[in-house]
Nucleic acid binder design. Structure first.
Length: 840
RNA sequence: GGGGCGGUGGCGGAAUUGGCAGACGCAGCGGACUUAAAAUCCGCCGGGCGCAGGCCCUUGUGGGUUCGAGUCCCACCCGCCCUACCA
């Protein structure tokens, strides 16, 4: 009897050895295929939680597998260290955000090391250090120089709890809550810094075709970008030759169905066109809408409201005047802030028309209705009887549309668009739902925006050579949550770099998504040029090393960043390409989204539910290998699933069994010699498992990979008590088992490898090659069906021909019993699977 | 309202993509070892009928295609996620 499996001892020992021997040291080896494997960097909240383990330990297995397959793998790590929790801790516990963050990192680094991952700690990056964030500022200035950073006053989302503005991507849910704290956001009119991400909207859309990302993420991004093609054209105001407004529509084919027009309440024309008798009503409505948006914005989406301005616009298609309304449902921020309303073919317009008694003329019908020639279907009576808008496009035909009547989609769109271009100052236009990225935050714990406000020169950028603009350490945190930068005299006062006048610094800091937008580049040379003078011609990392490793080959992380981080980093890379820093278009070639690990109750882990699982408890009880393997075994990695405190015992038992399988002598000694058949069977099991496990690792199907290893070790446990024990085939089986376990369970496999007297380290071994010939079965069991029901099973040689198989099947006594005297009409033979005899 | 994902034993989940449903594990039951328990090992383990050979039913529900459907098509029910006056 050897000693028992004791994970605590061996895990610690090997982690130390790996570190001492530099096993995961990054090397730029031009002979090997490089593989930049990246997992999303953690926020240093204080403790590594189960979600981190669930995201990172399978990633590590994937990275280790790639390495054993001969790739030169780099698997870096860092900390997303700016952000609000640090500042909240400062206010609450009177501890400086820097101190709080760094001690959390210290703690989490230790926990991460317990995971036994192949992280390259030599290139760790912490985003809150000046050596890191000076480059955020450098990028900001470059963006400013390129016209991609600008300042604008506009209504923006503001979280009253976090006391800061938010990007649109950070406002979540139908009730529009803050992504961080869940407080409903309010709208404020503020002057804020933005990045012109919309300039890249088309490219962000097209680039999705080129990358191997989950369809789900691509769809989310496509919808978020929200490209829509349409026509913008001019509407003249009746009796006011000097005034007009423009509308955007995706349905120019419905223009004859316009029965009114709507301006957003904030539309600049409202004041000018409103007639005196309607002014009180219009003013009241405008103030009401404004006030409403300053309060908590409720979802009063359903009920349409609006008021008549007293003015009329001319429908350019037919010269008819239509009343102009203002209504909340038309947004100033999309399109032109004005629409043509076609109630018969747009549900929102329809609801408005019914409420205010406006006509709903039908101008589009399905093709078959048109071909039936039943004009009653688009009569006034039919229009009056409509219950909802008909919004179909494909297979529709224009009716009641003057000379255009009878045109079918998509010709109807094209002809009307061309006509509007010619007669109504129209132009084909593409609109996007995507808005520019609001980057200003009214917080302390972030990268200072490197701008200066001068009474003479206006807004002036900090010169590159003056970077970084350091966050002052002696900040005073107010319980009101206001940024200490606003009151920090030393930080605030500065001389204008242009005219030398007394000026003051921008006190807003950057959105922390700025940090993670380029961290995969920062890892190459963390804190590059820290303490040196920067210039616009710099490259933010060691270019030679970057050329070797970039771009990221495999990225893993949660799907919650689909329209935030994952969109921003793609945008950043495209800008960096335009800056000449990189020569590719997409930052991450492959992406895998793991699912979410849930509490025992199947719900999201949360303190309030009390279902939080602390991984440290399990690591100290079972060891990291068990926790890793259990998380992989739980189910498909992209689906996540509930933690099961008892199922982990099963995985732990498996590791104990492997331990004893490899090290303990068989229970009974046999003197017999193994038969050739026994050897073949053993080798078959080995190579079959190897094929299965290899393809499972390749596809991140860790759950079935572990299952296959368990099945294999069960087979070996049985085989051990036979004469094959100790043979070459047995050695091959055991070694292959350990090699297959190595990426997922790195410690126990290393320990057993060493105890077998094999050279250090198992993680430097190449992945064994499966021999499909050895894996091949000699015999298969074939199901014999009569009329689709299994009635017998026979075992036949694998390479039996169809005729022979058919003959054997028909000869089956049990099958014959079911066939009886019914004539056999057909026999379907599926080699290696079944024979189906149809007798009726 | 729109979009996406999913529904398989008591539970987590398998199923070469149209070919023997339930791999692997958990829980449960029975047995061995033990004074006893834990640990470990062996056996059984979707439901129903039968002494048994065996038979029938079963992948949310209903229909369809097919020799054959968990898998494909249509309709519906349920759950989760995202999104929402985007013209």
């Amino acid at each position: 009897m050897t000693d028992r499996y004791d994970p605590q001892t061996i895990e610690k020992k090997w982690q130390q050895t790996w570190e001492e021997t530099g096993l995961y040291k990054r090397v730029e080896d031009p002979e090997k295929e490089k593989w930049y494997f990246l997992t999303m960097l953690p926020y240093p909240s204080g403790d590594l939680h189960t979600g981190h383990w669930y995201a990172m330990s399978p990633s590590d297995a994937g990275a280790r597998f790639a390495r054993m397959r001969g790739k030169n793998v780099w698997f870096p790590i860092g900390f997303d260290a700016f952000g609000l929790p640090a500042e909240n801790a400062a206010i609450k516990h009177n501890i400086h955000p820097h101190k709080w963050t760094m001690s959390n990192i210290e703690r989490m680094r230790g926990q991460l090391k317990q995971m036994g991952a192949m992280f390259d700690w030599e290139h760790e990056a912490i985003t809150c250090l000046p050596g890191y964030y000076q480059w955020n500022q450098w990028f900001f200035l470059k963006f400013y120089d390129m016209g991609l950073a600008y300042r604008e006053e506009a209504p923006v989302d503001f979280c009253p709890t976090c006391n800061t503005t938010l990007a649109r991507e950070q406002v979540w849910g139908e009730d529009r809550r803050c992504e961080r704290c869940g407080t409903p956001v309010i709208i404020k009119n503020l002057t804020q810094w933005k990045f012109r991400i919309t300039k890249y909207a088309d490219e962000l859309l097209e680039g999705l075709e080129k990358i191997d990302w989950p369809e789900r993420v691509k769809t989310l991004q496509r919808n978020w970008i929200g490209r829509s093609e349409g026509v913008e054209f001019e509407m003249k105001i009746q009796g006011r030759e000097d005034l007009s407004f423009r509308v955007f529509t995706t349905r120019p084919d419905t223009v004859f169905g316009m029965s009114f027009a709507v301006l957003a309440p904030e539309h600049p024309l409202v004041a000018q066109i409103t007639t005196p008798e309607h002014k009180p009503e219009v003013d009241a409505y405008v103030t009401e809408v404004q006030r409403k948006s300053e309060l908590v914005r409720q979802q009063d989406a359903g009920e349409k409201s609006g008021v008549f301005t007293g003015a009329y616009a001319i429908n350019p298609a037919n010269g008819q005047p239509v009343p102009i309304f203002i209504a909340e449902y038309v947004l100033m921020s999309y399109g032109t802030g004005a629409i043509m309303a076609v109630p018969a073919h747009d549900q929102r317009d329809f609801e408005f028309a019914r409420k205010y008694g406006l006509p709903t003329p039908i101008v589009i019908v399905p093709k078959d209705v048109w071909e039936a020639g039943d004009a009653d279907a688009w009569s006034d009576a039919a229009a009056a009887a409509l219950e909802r808008a008909f919004e179909g496009k494909e297979g529709t035909v224009m009716v009641n549309s003057g000379p255009f009547t009878g045109l079918a989609w998509p010709e109807s769109f094209d002809k009307m668009a061309a006509w509007l271009e010619e007669h109504a100052a129209g132009e084909r236009k593409v609109n996007y739902r995507l808005r520019d990225w609001l980057i200003s935050r009214q917080r302390y714990w972030g990268t200072p925006i490197p701008m200066i406000h001068c009474p003479n020169c206006g807004v002036v950028p900090v010169p590159y050579e003056d970077l970084p603009v350091l966050l002052p350490e002696d900040a005073e945190f107010k319980p009101t949550g206001e940024s200490p930068l606003k009151y920090h005299e030393g930080f605030l006062h500065v001389q204008c770099p242009v005219c030398g006048a007394d000026a003051h610094r921008e006190t807003d800091t950057m959105d922390t998504f700025m940090d993670s937008s380029w961290y995969q580049y920062a890892y190459i040379s963390p804190y590059w040029k820290d303490g040196e003078t920067l210039s616009p011609d710099d490259i933010p990392w060691d270019q030679a090393i970057g050329e070797y490793w970039l771009p990221v080959d495999q990225y893993t992380g949660g799907i919650e960043h689909a329209t935030m981080h994952l969109l921003y980093t793609r945008f950043f890379t495209k800008v960096m390409r335009d800056m000449g820093l990189v020569d590719f278009d997409e930052p991450m070639l492959r992406l895998f989204n793991q699912g979410m690990i849930l509490g025992e109750d199947g719900e999201k882990m949360s303190k309030s539910r009390g279902n939080v699982v602390n991984p440290d408890d399990y690591v100290s009880k079972y060891g990291a290998d068990t926790v890793r393997a259990f998380l992989m075994f739980i189910g498909p990695w992209d689906e996540g699933g509930p933690w099961n405190p008892r199922a982990i015992d099963g995985v732990h038992r498996f590791l104990h069994r492997v331990w004893s399988l490899v090290l303990d002598a068989p229970k009974k000694r046999t003197e017999e010699k193994p038969t050739a058949q026994q050897i073949r069977n053993l080798r078959r099991a080995t190579h079959q498992t190897l094929m299965k496990v290899t393809s499972d690792y390749e596809n991140f199907k860790f759950n079935t990979m572990i299952a296959a290893l368990m099945a294999f070790s069960n087979t070996l446990t049985t085989a051990k008590e036979t004469a094959v024990y100790g043979t070459e085939a047995w050695q091959e089986a055991i070694e292959t088992l350990l090699l297959m376990m190595a990426p997922a369970m790195p410690h126990i496999s290393e320990e057993l490898w060493a105890r077998l007297g094999k050279p250090y380290s198992i993680h430097l071994q190449t992945w064994p090659l499966a021999d499909p010939e050895l894996a091949k079965e000699e015999e298969v069991e074939i199901a014999i069906q009569v009329n689709g029901k299994v009635r017998d099973r026979i075992t036949v040689p694998i390479d039996i021909d169809r005729e022979a198989l058919e003959k054997l099947a028909l000869a089956s006594e049990r099958a014959q019993k079911w066939i009886g005297d019914k004539p056999v009409r057909k026999v379907i033979v599926v080699p290696g699977r079944l024979v189906n005899i149809i007798a009726k």
